[in-house]
Design a protein around this nucleic acid. Sequence first.
DNA 1: GTAAGTTTCAAACGGGCGTTTAGCAGGAAA
DNA 2: TTTCCTGCTAAACGCCCGTTTGAAACTTAC
Lengths: 211, 211
Amino acid sequence: MAQKETVERILDAAEVLFAERGFAETSLRTITSAAGVNLAAVNYHFGSKKSLIQAVFVRFLDPLVDEIERQLNQLQAEKERLTVEDLLQVLTSSVYEIHGRGSNRATSFMRLLGLAYTQSQAHLRKFIGERYGNAFQHYASHLKPALPGATAADLFWHTHFALGTAIFTMSNFDALRAMSENDTGERTPVDFIVSRLTAFMAAGLHNAAHE
Amino acid sequence: MAQKETVERILDAAEVLFAERGFAETSLRTITSAAGVNLAAVNYHFGSKKSLIQAVFVRFLDPLVDEIERQLNQLQAEKERLTVEDLLQVLTSSVYEIHGRGSNRATSFMRLLGLAYTQSQAHLRKFIGERYGNAFQHYASHLKPALPGATAADLFWHTHFALGTAIFTMSNFDALRAMSENDTGERTPVDFIVSRLTAFMAAGLHNAAHE
DNA sequence: GTAAGTTTCAAACGGGCGTTTAGCAGGAAA
DNA sequence: TTTCCTGCTAAACGCCCGTTTGAAACTTAC
């Protein structure tokens, strides 16, 4: 009992702090003191800082990937060919399904996903690739029929352009929203941003097919 | 003479190493030993590691921003209203103008720009904002007439979506190209990627105007 | 109640970091 | 020749890091 509590307190604190400052910039001492546990607890329960980072992602990605898979299968049972808009919708509604609409946890997670790409944590990218590579391939395989006429190179690059748009927006979410608040004078609702973002990605992706 | 040589050797080494590994992950000892100068030289010539990071950006951004401004003015003399495609073209041709097409230096710089956004270097973002904020505003001011019908919020978000697409692609340039080589079996030319990227961004941006 | 097994804890270890210091080399000015 | 200044350098300083250790505290089982 006491163990589980400690493990989860560490994961909770690490998730928030990593998202705020990045991995290298967050020390184990910061995490453990925020979690109210002893410094040595991380190495006792997780083995190392690297393993802790991976554990944070597993706790988040495992249920999300399952949900995406579930929605994908359900949608495929209804219609044979999925559109780009369908595929993007699966992503956003999966995140919404697992955590509330625009919850703090969801934005934390978005930041973390962005950091996984941009920070120099080779072990993490390798780990994520091995654990979730198949799920990603499965999702991406639906894009090919959704964008007839696109070559393999087109598909690859446009997928990653879209991915980049999303990840950049995610990982700078708070900063961007603050800037736009200064700019336009009002706070943009999350739903507005998400719908704009998916529309932007869809437009770019469609561009891959008819050229 | 000896001074100038030392300063530039440090900048050269720092530029490459920062781009490869990030700022926090590159120690002054690594930089100075790669540059063949004494460890203390960085603090003697630049004052601190932070100032060195800023100096790397100044050496790169100052001439680039001048070139963008020049091309923008020249284009504006030819036609009164610039299109989205014009504006994107100015960016790519400015980079090409200052450094060769697809030179190592240009890809280093792209990585650095990405890192400036994604790594936690508050001092750097502040510095860049203060030094180049006006130039950015000037450039962005041309977007409004190029996208009639878009609201201020539309403009803000779609500009940053496009920025995100470019920065993500830039900062993961080598990794993405290696992945696509494994994927499709052949090495994608830089020109292909750049033209695809700008087409993706243009499609997304136009989407802001007619909705 | 005692033994075995887990979990927690204070303390320390070794190492890498950015920065500082005090002094050296060598050309310019007097 | 002496003085001054700039560029350079070896060495050290203090700090924070992830990790390890050995013992204390607690839980479980007999």
